[in-house]
Design a protein around this nucleic acid. Sequence first.
DNA 1: CCGCATCCTCTCTGATACTG
DNA 2: CAGTATCAGAGAGGATGCGG
Lengths: 119, 119
Amino acid sequence: MAIAPDEAATQTLVRDLLERIGDKWSVVVICQLGGSTRRFNELRRLCAPITQRMLSVTLRGLERDGLVRRTVFDTKPPRVDYALTARGLSLLAVVRGLAGWAESHVDEILESRATFDGD
Amino acid sequence: MAIAPDEAATQTLVRDLLERIGDKWSVVVICQLGGSTRRFNELRRLCAPITQRMLSVTLRGLERDGLVRRTVFDTKPPRVDYALTARGLSLLAVVRGLAGWAESHVDEILESRATFDGD
DNA sequence: CCGCATCCTCTCTGATACTG
DNA sequence: CAGTATCAGAGAGGATGCGG
């Protein structure tokens, strides 16, 4: 019978999470942030070819959800550091888990795609 | 082995996976398919309020990647069954893993969102 | 150096209507 | 029952220029 006691809740939770990290850049930023602290343009280079705008938007979203911490230094020229919070780090672990599955199955999936001809 | 042997590859793999399951309905369909075989309209009710079109599109995508198997019975009225493949089932396990993280952190994230006012 | 504002395009999604 | 075709709206994402 039921392996999953509450399928509906599972779906909703996962969909919420995917709306968080399912966008184009969140995962890339999280991975590049890793355990290190990075400055804005440094991160931008690491996440190339991300645009300035999308890095800004993505970081703000992650910060909003408490996954990234933003530290402003009131110097000249200005300096802003970004780092994963503890919560962000735990998400990074989840992302690495996803990578494991993807790595194991990417070849088969590409194979399926190539073979598929619409039935 | 290293915690992060190849960050760049990790990002790409995860992004590819998210482009597969990051759409609005794939996860819902996969969850509802679970271990069971379902017919089209049955699945449609379970995935409500999905539209006919989106269920069709989503299933076709999943089938294309070998995650769902489509079985046509040449009867009248027509009957088509859908079920997860072994690959699809392994993905379902991954999705349940995501749900675990989401469940643990959804409250804190909502809290962060409510508190966040642009720093 | 850091980042916002504007505009614009392109994809995803949903509504609706039609077919075997 | 199980789809496909067409159209239209919404929103993500990219280009560019300005400001602190």
